[in-house]
Design a protein around this nucleic acid. Structure first.
Length: 426
RNA sequence: GGAGGGGUGGCAGAGUGGUCGAAUGCACCGGUCUUGAAAACCGGCGUCGGUUUACCCCGACCGCGGGUUCGAAUCCCGCCCCCUCCGCCA
């Protein structure tokens, strides 16, 4: 949600910035109309309520003195008719205004490149050298089944397309990656390990911005207001919703492993092979709650924490700043980490690190009390993958594969794996 | 799933139809006293919205939503959450 003060004071500027994100300028104009209606209705309504309150008080005094109050009661009768009318009018306006506000995306930070889609993204840096293979590297969808560690067919049998079953060192590798990442972030990067529910309610999803606009991407539990989490960003960011934190508690850094569930509406035909795009995947998430003054420094830190995972796993990657047209609705600025996948001869997203500024905090009513006192302020929220586990497993398999079809396990994972290689059986 | 109890300001905890946004205690902030601190005493101390340069003023909020009433923290209905016991279950 955007600040109402900003929408009132600079509608033309907000409108311009939202257009960069593909929003129609009429939305801001409509907001202005509704806001004006809301305030004039409220002013009228509150004046009537004041009259009613004063009359009621007079009635109370008269009755206590044993006097007749019929005249005052009659006076209130007309108010009793008009107040509910105006109230429902005010509610209707407020509802429409609120719904409109919930659908407006965040404003892009000034450092974000302008553009309609990913072609306008800006590559910030390339880290690591893609390995020179002296054989034709395989894609993980061939490697995994050949090694007997990934099974797409059997998963389809018990569930359907875009699900995968892992066996043996494949399952072990997934679990090792989760533990390795949680250990790294908690022991070296100062995160609190969290284990949230994997099912969340609609309020939480509104808080982080998935609802009301993107319900089709979610798995909803029939007969409930519950949804499977699409990312741990939702439970983590909403944990302290409706609360006022002490500034001394900030910045708060939270990390969690959760499975993520996505309906992948509209992605038919994209990445149909392999692990890249699944209805269920694992992820270790990073969330920061910070003061507004610190949030951009925090974005650099959070991104570096995700990058550290790639470095330790000896995976080449690049850092990309998403353009205005490619960012998620809640973000003011997003860095994507894209890992090199030799089997596909491409860099693919493995982490997305965003500063949402106060956009989610306003929706979730997430505030802090400044140390020097004064009114509560909205804090800034950030989130990023640290990393997506399934895609990391893909990157490990494809980058560390050998000519004989085996895979060498990176040094840092060996204590978790209890193995140095994944060999072809039989 | 069944039965009972309960949700009030940062915390504890009064308040059962009329100056109640709400006693009191603790915590916190400021002051007096003190060499300093503590204690004691005095004062202050919720959030959101409307109006406003500002002060003020006004409206709303006692889990959430509706209802009764001139008037609801207080009465009625529905829902949510927490606690205890029973059942079931990993």
């Amino acid at each position: 949600m955007l600040s109402r003060d900003l929408l009132r004071d600079s509608p033309e500027r907000v409108s311009e910035l939202l257009e960069l994100r593909g929003e129609s300028p009429s939305a801001v104009a409509r907001w202005g109309e509704l806001d004006g209606q809301r305030r004039s209705t409220l002013t009228e309504l509150e004046a009537l309520k004041r009259q009613r309150n004063e009359a009621s008080k007079a009635i109370g005094e008269l009755k206590r003195e044993g006097k007749d109050a019929e005249a005052q009661i009659a006076e209130v009768a007309e108010l009793k008719r008009r107040i509910p009318e105006l109230e429902s009018e005010a509610t209707a306006i407020e509802t429409e205004l609120r719904d409109l506000e919930l659908r407006l995306p965040n404003l892009p930070h000034e450092s974000v490149p302008h553009g309609a889609d990913e072609s306008a993204n800006r590559v910030e840096r390339l880290i690591g050298e893609p390995r020179a293979f002296d054989f034709e590297p395989q894609a993980h969808w061939d490697l995994g089944p050949a090694l007997g560690i990934l099974d797409f067919e059997r998963a389809a049998k018990i569930t359907g397309a875009r699900f995968t079953a892992y066996f043996d060192l494949g399952a072990r590798l997934e679990r090792s990656l989760i533990n390795f990442m949680l250990d790294l972030h908690t022991s070296e990067h100062g995160y609190r390990e969290t284990l949230p529910p994997f099912i969340v309610n609609d309020d939480a999803l509104i808080g982080t911005g998935q609802l009301p606009k993107f319900g089709d991407d979610l798995f909803k539990l029939e007969g409930h207001r519950y949804y499977l989490v699409p990312t741990a960003e939702v439970p983590l960011t909403n944990l302290f919703r409706e609360e006022i934190l002490d500034e001394a508690e900030l910045p708060m850094r939270l990390t969690a492993f959760t499975p993520c569930f996505r309906a992948e509406a509209g992605s038919h035909g994209k990445d149909v092979r392999g692990l890249i795009r699944q209805h269920q995947f694992n992820k270790v998430e990073l969330v920061h709650l910070t003061t507004p003054e610190q949030s951009y420094e925090a974005l650099e830190q959070l991104t570096s924490h995700a990058e550290r995972v790639l470095e330790l796993l000896e995976l080449p990657y690049r850092v990309v700043t998403l353009s205005t047209g490619d960012m998620g609705v809640s973000a003011a600025k997003t860095y994507d980490l894209e890992v090199w996948l030799p089997g596909q001869d491409a860099y693919r997203e493995i982490s997305s690190c965003s500063n949402c500024e106060a956009y989610q905090a306003r929706r979730a009513n997430l505030r802090f009390r400044p140390s020097e006192g004064g009114k509560p302020r909205f804090l800034h929220t950030l989130n990023g993958s640290g990393l997506a586990i399934g895609r990391t497993l893909v990157a490990v398999l494809e980058n560390h594969q050998q000519s004989d079809g085996s895979v060498v396990i990176p040094e840092v994972l060996r204590p978790y794996m209890g193995a140095e290689r994944i060999e072809l059986h039989s």
